[in-house]
Amino acid sequence: MFELLGISPQALYGQLLIGLINGSFYAVLSLGLAIIFGLLNIINFSHGAQYMMGAFVAWIGLTQLPQWLGNPDFVINYWAALVLVPLIVGAFGVFIERTMLRRLYKLDHLYGLLLTFGIALIIEGLFRDWYGVSGQQYEIPEVFQGTINLGFMFLPKYRAWVVVAALTVCFLSWYVIERTKLGSYLRAGTENPRLTQAFGVNVPLMITLTYGYGVALAAFAGVLAAPIFTVSPKMGADLIIVVFAVVVIGGMGSIFGAIVTGIGLGLIEGLTRVFYPEASAVVIFVIMAIVLLVRPAGLFGRER
């Protein structure tokens, strides 16, 4: 069959794997965007910069921190980074929400978009100034070096880990939001924040923490990405445009939609690269245009 189609099975599996990995990143990033949009009604344009910050802070912890402190023992290794970096960048998100975003909730979406876009430009500018545009390498942790032989292909261990870690975080987030008490506060707050607050739920605090969590998800994706992609100030800007298309296709504010659409579009992109490589860079945007024509609220979105 592969001969008939004129492609090699290796190429197909290889591209499907790349598609799955890209899809995992799309899913984690669009999940964060969807959660933030749901409760804050703000389109977080600094999401890509916060993802880049995640990768950079992890890289700084591994390579720069020991030099700054003059002691090779003071190093934040990969595992510590997976936990610490989302907390650090998430705290930065909390700071932004408390000091700036909070003032915009009563205004049109557009103001939140402009503010977060400005923040993204500042963050990217600072990192470009400090570390240049050439990009840094983050070494794959030792346990994940090498490949697993699946019989029909060799699977790099780290890439398998990325897919598992990303899907686990997506599933846990979905579970907490859709199946727990805390999640019911979040859904109620998304639907009617004033009434939820009138029942005694501290909605302003919940909004702050939700933004922090969305930002932390972006940083988590950044740490996962550091060993695969070059750590550079531009890495977020390149990715985030695609992620916005994913969110538009899935439907703004739909948690489940964001995850499924993210993975699905990653795979579609991978398949396109096998069958018609010329279209691989635009296929997601073509799908976005079609979805917007047929279902303006997105595949999983509700009309507001």
């Binding site: 004033r194 607050q197 009138a198 029942f199 005694g200 739920v201 501290n202 909605v203 302003p204």
Partner: peptide, 8 residues
Amino acid sequence: LPTHQIAH
């Protein structure tokens, strides 16, 4: 008082 404290 903020709304959520009044409820309490």
